[in-house]
Simulated assay, not measured.
Amino acid sequence: MDYKIIIVGIGPGAPEYIVPIAKQQIDNAKVLVGSKRALETLAAPDITSKIITGDIPSVISFIQAQLYKQDVVVMVSGDPGYYSLLAALRRSFPLKKLQVIPGISSMQLAFARLALPWQAARLLSLHGRKPDKQSLCFTEGAILGILTDTIYTSKTIAELLLRHNWPRTTKVYLCARLSYENEEIIETTLENAVQTKEFSHCIMVVTA
């Protein structure tokens, strides 16, 4: 049979943000691949599973072995099309083997929380990536949506933007732990973001 890899977006974190068709695929899966937290939260106790770690080749090998006998459901946080394992799967398998079910990304949820349209926003990921100078340059009316990490935090990104001529009074929203009970959204300025509470994993929305 022509078995498939079904890549499902499981949203920003809280289970209620998983779209119904994705939840249906997870519930019916015989093989699940995902983060440790996702498997602990969503996988049945006796299911065949594989934790996604930094060793991506071992994850690919596991999927290849299972794909000979059944479909494999791969859970990725947020939306599969936005910085997920999907890129590696496209490099390793024929496109006809892949079925993608979209999800709600943390970036999407951040803009929703702010009631801010994002069709014109400049979306950047500094999560495990180095910044591109051109994408950081100030332009009047620009909106940035930025994924942060432990190196490029809310503080270091604010410092970067100030060095790229963004006004010190530029409004900034720090959106942390979105969808969870301890969700936190802080409105501040670039100047204050350098001096106040630092976030290492959040969505940073900057509005010129």
Score class of each variant (00 low, 15 high):
Y83T: 00
L85K: 11
L86A: 06
A87T: 06
A87N: 10
A87F: 06
A88I: 00
A88R: 00
A88S: 02
L89M: 09
R90V: 04
P94G: 07
P94H: 07
P94A: 09
L95K: 11
L95D: 14
K96L: 03
K96S: 06
K97T: 13
K97P: 11
L98D: 04
L98A: 03
Q99Y: 13
Q99R: 14
V100I: 15
I101A: 07
P102C: 11
P102S: 06
G103Y: 02
I104G: 00
I104H: 00
S105A: 07
S105E: 06
S106D: 02
M107Q: 10
M107R: 01
M107H: 04
A110H: 03
F111R: 00
F111T: 00
A112M: 07
R113P: 05
R113T: 12
R113Q: 14
L114R: 02
L114E: 04
A115F: 08
A115M: 07
A115D: 14
L116G: 12
L116W: 05
P117C: 02
W118V: 11
W118I: 12
Q119R: 10
Q119V: 03
A120W: 03
A120V: 05
A121F: 00
R122P: 09
L123Q: 14
L123S: 08
L124E: 02
L124D: 00
S125P: 09
S125W: 08
L126K: 01
H127R: 00
G128N: 12
R129Y: 09
K130P: 13
P131C: 13
P131D: 12
P131G: 09
D132Y: 03
K133Y: 15
Q134P: 03
Q134L: 12
Q134N: 10
S135G: 11
S135L: 14
F138G: 06
F138K: 03
T139K: 11
T139A: 15
E140T: 09
E140M: 07
